[in-house]
Write a protein that binds this DNA or RNA. Structure first.
Lengths: 115, 115
DNA sequence: GAATCACTTGGTCATTTGGCCAAGCGTGAC
DNA sequence: GTCACGCTTGGCCAAATGACCAAGTGATTC
């Protein structure tokens, strides 16, 4: 992995990092339905307004959402809806993990024939 | 966001977190081509073997890859190749961000008509 | 069974992240 | 202008993350 490739992967990782938090996933889901002001999202999340504002800042910096002042409010909307496609795959990963766990639970002596 | 929904989003976030690192993205890309032992991946990344082993542990815990001992080696492979679909969208996000940056650079007085 | 190779795990440290409170800033209402 | 409202940002702290080295474990070799 040379310097150039590392940089490329770091840029990708930054976008993924922006999505790697429950509250930010909630925000993305809500904005997928319709645009929202900060206060509405903070309400839904149940965290301090400042905390939510920072989460929005992270998503915005990553280029996933964009915000616009409208009167007193700042209204955010999804800028790259393709991120919604991730969730199907994520669910598949989780489902397979759950299956594997179940398999282990039901057949603990799968590999080691004895003991 | 009730307790149940938070839990659901946290599970999703855990999978995404596992992908949110340049070295781990490198690993996923390599394993998409073919399976590899830890030493090969460590070589490619250029980090300590222990560090790479932990990265593999994170991906495995998330259910994205799986490993199998084969003689002296432990060989890892991709378990849920659908994660590769993420990258197209990520690149689009990055490309749009780059465009936005360029726009700002070329027209700094876009919104505020004067000043 | 001792040595060696491939990997994992414990210990430690520096850095990053996420949370809240408090203070600041921009906008609209009065 | 000044007040209130909505949001952002600075300050701070606790917890999580990522890195390395060193020690431990599993498997092959001799």
């Amino acid at each position: 992995m040379n310097r150039r490739e590392r940089r490329r992967l770091e840029l990708r990782a930054d976008v993924i990092k922006a999505l790697a938090h429950a509250s930010r996933l909630y925000i993305v889901e809500q904005l997928a339905r319709q645009e929202h002001c900060v206060c509405e999202l903070a309400d839904g999340i149940g965290a301090d307004l400042s905390t939510v504002s920072r989460h929005l800042g992270v998503l915005k910096a990553a280029g996933i959402i964009e915000g616009e002042r409208r009167g007193k409010n700042v209204v955010y909307r999804l800028r790259t809806p393709c991120v919604l496609n991730f969730f199907g795959c994520i669910e598949r990963v989780l489902a397979e993990s759950a299956q594997a766990t179940a398999r282990v639970r039901c057949a603990p002596a799968m590999q080691s024939t004895s003991t």
